[in-house]
């Protein structure tokens, strides 16, 4: 009973996006946490998803609290108008494996590493390690190369049922 009353007394969280300088998201998040502790503000968490460049997401019941907090924080530019619910940012908490969307036989382009720019065909996918094994298209001898799933870009998907 007392717990229920205590739960009701806590204002509901909302998510506010704060625009930041690119690549300064983590330092802004650290500073927001520091100011929150120092000034005892009602900010509950700060989220910096890898996919969201130039923004940090702040969990707080009111936008005014966030605005007040970022006033003197370098690289924090402004609070984006409007609030999001927790369900809208929930997908950031469980990021998808990087190999999602890649299947065996696809033609991919390597985007980093010593084979950057090379085209290759996917031979094997290791979902647990988020690695793929590819064979470079332009190599004389097909040598399997294992690379991370996030350094490839899919160029064309394998046509199913069109085996020669």
């Amino acid at each position: 009973m007392a717990d229920e009353a205590a739960q009701q007394a806590i204002p509901k969280s909302a998510i506010f996006a704060v625009k930041t300088t690119a690549n300064q998201e983590r330092s802004v998040a650290n500073l927001i946490a520091m100011v929150t502790r120092k000034e005892n503000l009602d900010i509950r968490s700060v989220l910096v998803p890898e996919e969201l460049k130039g923004y940090v997401l702040v969990e707080s019941p009111m936008a005014e609290i966030v605005e007040d907090c970022i006033k003197n924080i370098p690289h924090a530019k402004a609070v984006v108008r409007g609030a999001s619910s927790i369900t809208e940012v929930q997908h950031f908490l469980a990021p998808k494996p990087t190999v999602t969307g890649i299947s065996e036989g696809d033609i991919v382009e390597l985007t980093a590493g010593p084979f950057k720019g090379e085209k290759a065909r996917v031979k094997r996918i290791d979902e647990a390690k988020e690695e793929i094994t590819v064979e470079l298209s332009e190599a004389m001898v097909p040598i399997p190369v294992t690379v991370r799933g996030d350094i490839v870009r899919v160029l064309s998907k394998e046509e199913t049922g069109a085996k020669k």
Binding site: D42, S45, E50, P95
Partner: peptide
């Protein structure tokens, strides 16, 4: 990857 600061 991904960074979260839990304050409360």
């Amino acid at each position: 990857s991904g960074y979260v600061v839990i304050i409360d």
